[in-house]
Design a protein around this nucleic acid. Structure first.
Lengths: 213, 213
DNA sequence: TTCTCGATGTGTACACTGCCCACAACAGCG
DNA sequence: CGCTGTTGTGGGCAGTGTACACATCGAGAA
């Protein structure tokens, strides 16, 4: 029995929302230590439940990690949406479309920098195109990061900035650039560079995408 | 230095090159299962040695993984060099410089696709700028992947393709794009796409870098 | 109302991991 | 020859994932 004041020991035999509690605990561990820190037994401990109870809701540790990863992708979507909200449209369709794609990138990088553990966890699980738009990976706005990038690109086509024949699969190019920068910043050679330097590199990378798409 | 690779039971008390054998075993495990599959005890088992012997050569599992990761980066450098060799200079300095940067990207992506486990392992260990050029991460040509990208960019500046003021930190932009694509291909939404599709995306990404740098 | 049953949580157990400690064997030195 | 520091061994501990049998209980059937 845990006498944790924040997590009162339950009185009922049933937990109520053990699945959700395990995911929440997993997210908390992922926040501090990345995907490797998501430990099944520790999650059950935090939920005040015996280790094997987890197996009523997840086939194995990988399944739990997958659910945690999806949740993290939703958080990424939220952060991207926040960046979009910070750059409201001005009325100039072309400039707005450009700025929206930029905002998606800025939100993505911001998420990587603010929550490196969650960022790593979000992308620690193999994924494929079919599942990239699964609602489980969506944020509060109901969209996944992948769909947010796609939306920004559609707007660029609608505004005439990108010719339609370049639209196809452009998600992958934009995403690759931004995702790569995110990795380099939290785990790669850019780690520990001062903030201004990273801001500058982010700007230049987004310039490159803007020019090169 | 590297004889008797398949010696089940050694006769001498000393192993001879246990450190190297452990790294080699680690690389083999990484090849099949990525960084998570690099397990210390299994490495000692494959080296025909007791578990604790590893601690005479590595402080802990993280240290072994780090050494394996460095080795993998060297393999990446080798694959990039191979791609460079496959596109020999034609005499046109400008076209050659462009092609060299392209070849670096192609080699990088080829490595990710051919050896996903080693690729993941190479970048599973936190790193910073100071260590990006450590000789431990170099390939047979003595250069690290980071240095190979840098060289290609220097050639682009020398050929007048890139203005010098855009040279600084351009490594990060080119690297981010290619690295991101590599991750998307082996772990992300592009996983399982057919080869032609990936080739096409790679081409378009390198176009973007070429245009956008 | 009572009974049953499927869903959910518990207890025990096993194989495996990383890592700590004390000890054993040996190569290279005087 | 003996000493000594390096390298490998053996036993042990805490912690992990997970398989199996069992306990508890909520809800629908009788």
């Amino acid at each position: 029995m845990s006498d944790d004041p924040e997590n009162p020991g339950r009185t009922t035999y049933r937990h109520g929302d053990l699945r959700g509690a395990l995911i929440a605990a997993g997210v908390e561990m992922a926040r501090e230590g990345g995907p490797r820190a998501v430990v099944l037994r520790e999650a059950t401990r935090r939920a005040g439940v015996s280790p094997n109870a987890a197996y009523r809701h997840f086939a194995d540790r990988a399944a739990l990690l997958h659910a945690v990863s999806d949740t993290c992708l939703g958080f990424a979507a939220d952060r991207i949406q926040q960046a979009l909200d910070e750059h409201p449209p001005t009325g100039d369709a072309e400039a707005d479309a450009r700025m929206a794609l930029r905002a998606v990138g800025l939100g993505y990088i911001a998420f990587a920098r603010e929550e490196p553990g969650l960022f790593r966890t979000a992308f620690s699980v193999p994924d494929d195109l079919r599942q990239a738009m699964s609602p489980a990976k969506a944020g509060r706005n109901g969209l996944t990061p992948f769909q947010l990038v796609g939306g920004a690109l559609d707007a660029l086509v609608a505004a005439g900035v990108i010719p339609p024949e370049r639209r196809e699969n452009a998600e992958f190019l934009a995403w690759a650039a931004v995702h790569g920068l995110g990795m380099l910043v939290i785990d790669g050679p850019l780690r520990g560079l001062d903030d201004r330097m990273i801001d500058y590199s982010t700007d230049r990378l987004l310039d490159m995408v803007d020019r090169g798409l």
